[in-house]
Structures are given as C-alpha cells and as structure tokens.
Simulated scan of single mutants.
Amino acid sequence: MPETRIRTAVPADESALGELDRSTWSPLHAVQPAPEPPYRPFFDERHRPEEYLVAEHAGEVVGYLRLAAATPLACNRHVRQIQGLAVAESVRGRGVARALLRAAMAEARRQGARRITLRVLGHNAPARALYASEGFAVEGVLPGEFLLAGAYVDDVLMGRSLGDLTR
C-alpha cells in the first residue's frame, strides 16, 4: 500500500481541495451551512496555499489541514492555530489525520511557534480523541456557542506546547 505524503499546498491544488472540502462537509464539524453552487474559491487573500498542508495517497489529494497565525498581533506571533482539517472518507482510519496533525506541529515549530491551538465542536468525539492522543488539552469551553440543526453545541478550545514533540 502506498504511503501518505504530506506537503505544502500549491495553487494547482485549488480544484482538488475545493472538492474535498465539499465532499467532507458534515454537521459534526461545520458551523457554516452545507456548500451549494456557485462554490466560493478554496484559496483567497485570507486563505493562502502556503497555509495548507496537503495529504496525498497514491497521487490523489486525500486530506488537508490549515495552519495559520492565531491572530495578527505581534505579541501572539508564537502561536499557530489549526483552522480546518479534512480527510476523504476513502482513507479514514488509516492515519491521515494524525499524519497531518503531526506535520502541522512540526511545521509550526519550524516557523518558531511555541504553542499550537485549535477549536473543535463539543460533539465531535472522534476529533477530540485524536487531538487528546497527540497531547492537546482542553483549555476552555464556550458552552452552547453554536446553534446547529436546532441544538446548542459547545465550542471547545484545545492547545498544547510545542516544546515536546515526542507525542
């Protein structure tokens, strides 16, 4: 079985990433409505290719993770934030999300970050378990922050130091 390769996105990934993003939309992790045509571009001035790590399996784009500055503030420059993670259904359970997560932590550290954070919906137990297994801890909860499909859902803030990348 071919190995999954993680790389930085390039503009030519636009179509594949847009399709992956639409095909993986789920109320388990999305706070925006399901995408409908006409579709917005995947990349724009606020979502640049260099902020994305792409997972390829057998030459096909099967996942992505967006790693960006947590805020534009200079005093917060040492923090990176995961602002999106998607994996194609066809490769779920094969370690693609974990590989993307580990690559993001390594890339954040390479960029000089000391911390990495993310936000995850409270009802997304699989994602929360993955993040916890990689050393992320719950650092805050915004109870009932989102009203999704008639139910209030918590926004869970998680983070970890990048000082110990052995996990």
Rank of each mutant, 00 (worst) to 15 (best):
I82R: 02
G84S: 01
T117M: 10
A88V: 00
T71N: 03
R114S: 07
V87T: 02
A103G: 12
G93K: 00
Q81T: 14
R80K: 08
R119G: 14
R109W: 11
I82C: 01
T71Y: 09
L100D: 09
A70M: 14
L101N: 06
R109E: 06
N124Q: 07
Q83W: 12
C75A: 13
R115C: 10
A88Y: 02
A108W: 08
R128K: 03
L100S: 13
R98D: 07
G112A: 09
R102T: 11
A69E: 14
P126D: 13
R102A: 12
A99S: 15
M105G: 08
R110N: 11
R77C: 14
A127M: 03
A129I: 00
P72W: 08
L85D: 01
G93A: 07
Q83A: 13
L130I: 04
R128Q: 04
H123L: 10
A103Y: 09
R98I: 07
A108D: 11
S90M: 05
L101Y: 03
R119P: 05
A74V: 13
A86R: 06
R102D: 08
T117F: 09
R80Q: 11
A69T: 08
L85C: 03
A108K: 07
R110Q: 12
R115K: 10
V79W: 11
A127F: 00
A74Y: 12
A127Y: 06
A74D: 15
S90Q: 08
G112K: 05
L85V: 11
L130P: 00
Q111M: 11
G95R: 07
I82W: 04
C75S: 14
T117K: 05
A113T: 09
A74M: 15
A113K: 03
A69Q: 11
R114G: 07
A104L: 13
L118Y: 03
V79T: 04
C75F: 14
L85W: 03
R110A: 14
A113I: 10
R80E: 15
A70N: 13
V87Q: 00
A113Q: 13
A97W: 00
G84H: 09
A86P: 04
L118D: 02
Q81C: 10
V91K: 00
E107N: 10
Q83V: 08
R92Q: 04
L118A: 00
V79K: 11
R92T: 05
L130W: 02
G122E: 07
R119S: 12
A69S: 11
Y131Q: 00
G93I: 12
A113Y: 08
T71S: 08
V96A: 04
T71C: 09
R128D: 00
R92M: 11
L121E: 01
Q81H: 10
N76C: 13
A108C: 15
